[in-house]
Simulated assay, not measured.
Amino acid sequence: MNSSYPYHFTRRYVGKLEAVIFDWAGTVLDFGSFAPTQVLVEAFAQIGIHLTLDEARGPMGLAKWDHIKAVGQMPSVAARWQAQFGAAMNDADVDRIYALFMPMQIEHVGRFSLPIRGAIETITQLRQRGLKIGSCTGYPRAVMNTLQPIAADYGFVPDHIVAADDLKAGARPGPWMALANVIELGIGHVAACVKVDDTIPGISEGLNAGMWTVGLAISGNEVGLTQDEWDALDIEQQEQKRDQASRKLAQAGAHYVIDSIADLLPVLNEIELRMAAGEQP
């Protein structure tokens, strides 16, 4: 008698959303994501390498040590580094820049970290729906120790926070920080979670964790303007920048792309309708 059973089935989550996991800079706080980028420019400048803000923004979403290394590997930066020092950047150089970066980041992170328009109100409504609020970030724990009480004064107090250097497994684009939120929040299935982020590594993190993902086109790194700078653009300029940013996040695999956290609630409603119809992330 053949005792093998070659049956195949797919186990689907049937239920409602349980949690939303947010990035920090460019997602909930710091419209335009200036705290990490501006300080990175200043850290490189201290050793004689002048970055543009676009170069500093390129690998945004990675843990900061990895971010610095990725910037140094950009062809434009690598060429200037070679000309300045006669060799390619190595890990010891990354350590040196990181050592310059960290105290400046800790000192200045609060200066840039006002809540994004509509963020606190949106999170309040999520809690009223019974959703848990997780979070993870490219910032290391030492920066979060400074930023967390500042954010709390503004009303942002997530149920859990995972910093980029908290986990042995690593950070983005891997799934580990998002999954650490699942564990600590007691979520029964990853498909009950939505990851919200303004960066491509952050979207990859959510996808790798098996979650729904929502990219933020305007408030974060891809457009990289302050709220006032964005508001000063005419409609045609805004549409051009929105289209460019949205396309990049969609190509990264985001299930939805919206302007900012203020637009999140209708997307969550649509996700729950899709889940009720049997769809999975």
Score class of each variant (00 low, 15 high):
residue 175 P to C: 03
residue 184 E to Y: 03
residue 140 P to M: 10
residue 46 Q to G: 09
residue 85 F to P: 00
residue 40 L to K: 14
residue 189 H to R: 04
residue 161 I to S: 02
residue 85 F to L: 09
residue 258 I to V: 13
residue 228 D to N: 14
residue 193 C to N: 02
residue 260 S to I: 04
residue 195 K to V: 09
residue 135 S to E: 01
residue 121 E to A: 15
residue 92 A to D: 12
residue 155 G to H: 10
residue 172 R to Y: 03
residue 8 H to A: 13
residue 242 R to P: 05
residue 246 S to E: 08
residue 182 V to L: 14
residue 174 G to M: 11
residue 172 R to K: 13
residue 202 G to W: 05
residue 183 I to D: 12
residue 230 W to K: 02
residue 3 S to G: 14
residue 77 V to E: 11
residue 58 G to C: 11
residue 104 M to N: 13
residue 142 A to Y: 05
residue 239 E to Y: 08
residue 14 V to M: 06
residue 248 K to F: 01
residue 69 K to M: 08
residue 123 I to M: 11
residue 263 D to L: 07
residue 18 E to A: 02
residue 236 E to L: 10
residue 166 D to K: 06
residue 199 T to P: 04
residue 275 M to L: 15
residue 231 D to I: 08
residue 274 R to V: 01
residue 217 A to H: 06
residue 212 W to A: 00
residue 38 Q to G: 06
residue 230 W to I: 07
residue 93 D to L: 03
residue 16 K to R: 11
residue 34 F to D: 01
residue 94 V to P: 00
residue 4 S to L: 14
residue 56 A to Q: 06
residue 143 V to F: 10
residue 80 R to Y: 04
residue 99 A to T: 15
residue 272 E to I: 00
residue 152 A to D: 04
residue 176 W to A: 04
residue 80 R to S: 15
residue 20 V to A: 01
residue 108 H to P: 00
residue 170 G to I: 09
residue 230 W to D: 09
residue 204 S to I: 04
residue 176 W to M: 03
residue 204 S to P: 00
residue 275 M to W: 03
residue 35 A to N: 00
residue 16 K to A: 06
residue 252 A to E: 06
residue 158 P to D: 03
residue 228 D to V: 13
residue 281 P to N: 06
residue 235 I to A: 15
residue 211 M to Q: 05
residue 200 I to Y: 01
residue 163 A to R: 10
residue 96 R to F: 11
residue 101 F to Y: 15
residue 233 L to F: 09
residue 37 T to I: 10
residue 80 R to E: 13
residue 266 P to E: 10
residue 250 A to R: 15
residue 157 V to Q: 11
residue 201 P to F: 03
residue 76 S to W: 01
residue 105 Q to G: 02
residue 236 E to W: 09
residue 106 I to G: 08
residue 268 L to H: 04
residue 178 A to D: 06
residue 50 H to Y: 11
residue 79 A to M: 05
residue 174 G to T: 05
residue 221 N to H: 11
residue 103 P to T: 10
residue 63 A to N: 14
residue 118 G to E: 03
residue 83 A to T: 15
residue 186 G to S: 02
residue 234 D to G: 04
residue 129 R to I: 12
residue 223 V to D: 07
residue 214 V to A: 04
residue 96 R to C: 07
residue 117 R to N: 12
residue 272 E to D: 01
residue 7 Y to R: 14
residue 242 R to H: 10
residue 47 I to A: 08
residue 84 Q to R: 15
residue 214 V to S: 01
residue 260 S to L: 05
residue 277 A to D: 13
residue 143 V to K: 12
residue 29 L to E: 08
residue 264 L to Q: 06
residue 45 A to F: 08
residue 213 T to L: 07
residue 117 R to S: 12
residue 262 A to G: 09
residue 86 G to V: 12
residue 87 A to D: 12
residue 54 D to P: 02
residue 151 A to L: 04
residue 98 Y to Q: 07
residue 33 S to W: 00
residue 149 P to M: 08
residue 191 A to V: 00
